[in-house]
């Protein structure tokens, strides 16, 4: 009974928060002369404010394309995306984006990179500095604030990219395989760090990955995606307790989920592999 109360309370809290994402009948079709490629086919997806959703699927399933449409980088062929009831037509600071590639501007220091969004919005210098310093401290980059990106390790660069998006208090944080290029150790640390920040800020996160373990470890819910055409195949809720730690990835519940997701993905991976032969 108490559990239900807590859940209801949480739901009520979340409804007042920003960051609801609604994807309605979204299709992306590339047409060539005598053939058309349905990269995404009638995607239907509803995300609660503050939810952490992982889009998981084999390469070619259109998971990054979906993220790019939500970001406003790509125009859909049909359907639409609503963020907090507002339709998306172009990129904006309300949807922070973390890229797979290292994407800090090479000519700006860490501080200047993170400051850029606030500067563009016209936030006064003193407030800007305070906010950027707060976020730098949070991810342990304060002492590297004057370094240029090439002086930072891959993990540091991605940490900086994450807070560059978050410092603008976006409604949604869109992450496109942000840890794919990192070594395993760093990746685990980054995942725990991301969960820590998310726990504080409760920003809605849409996280694209092809790594099953990563998706289970991070998400409230996993949407597995299928290929040809790209679509959402199943939605798997992950009700592992939070806060989660790396040890949890060895628990029975975790492994059971791993098996469940794996089975679901396997079929699609086979399909996408056959397609490439």
């Amino acid at each position: 009974m108490e559990d239900v109360m807590v859940t209801m309370q949480r739901t009520a809290e979340r409804q007042t928060l920003k960051g609801a994402v609604q994807v309605e009948g979204l299709s992306v079709v590339y047409r060539r002369k005598n053939y058309e490629n349905r990269v995404l086919d009638s995607i239907q997806l509803s995300i609660q404010p503050g939810e952490f959703v992982c889009l998981l699927g084999p390469s070619g399933c259109g998971k990054s394309t979906l993220l790019n449409v939500i970001a406003g980088f790509l125009k859909p062929s049909a359907g639409y995306v609503l963020v907090d009831q507002m339709p998306i037509s172009r990129p904006g600071a309300d949807r922070g984006f973390v890229f797979q590639q290292y994407s800090l501007l090479p000519w700006k220091t860490t501080f200047q990179n993170i400051e850029l969004g606030l500067k563009i919005r016209g936030v006064p210098k003193a407030e800007r500095t305070e906010r950027v310093h707060e976020y730098l401290n949070r991810v342990g980059l304060y002492k590297h604030r004057s370094s240029y990106p090439h002086q930072l390790s891959g993990g540091m660069q991605q940490r900086a990219s994450i807070i560059r998006a978050l410092v603008n208090s976006p409604s949604v944080l869109l992450m496109d395989e942000p840890f794919a290029a990192l070594d395993a150790q760093t990746r685990h640390m980054m995942q725990e760090m991301l969960l820590g920040i998310w726990d504080d800020l409760k920003t809605t996160v849409i996280f694209v990955t092809h790594d099953i373990e990563e998706a289970i470890f991070l998400g409230d819910r996993i949407c597995t995606m299928g290929v040809h055409p790209g679509r959402i195949k199943s939605e798997i809720p992950i009700d592992l307790p939070r806060p989660r730690h790396f040890d949890d990835t060895l628990s029975k519940e975790f492994l059971a989920l791993h098996r469940q997701v794996f089975t679901c993905i396997r079929e699609e991976t086979m399909k996408s592999m056959e397609e490439s032969f």
Binding site: P91, G92, F97, Q101, L116, N168
Partner: peptide
């Protein structure tokens, strides 16, 4: 990627021109 970085920080064409 560089252009998109600017766009999703809310940059208009002038900001993209000047900062990127």
């Amino acid at each position: 990627v560089l252009i998109r970085v600017g766009q999703c920080l809310g940059a208009n064409s002038w900001h993209i021109f000047k900062d990127i």
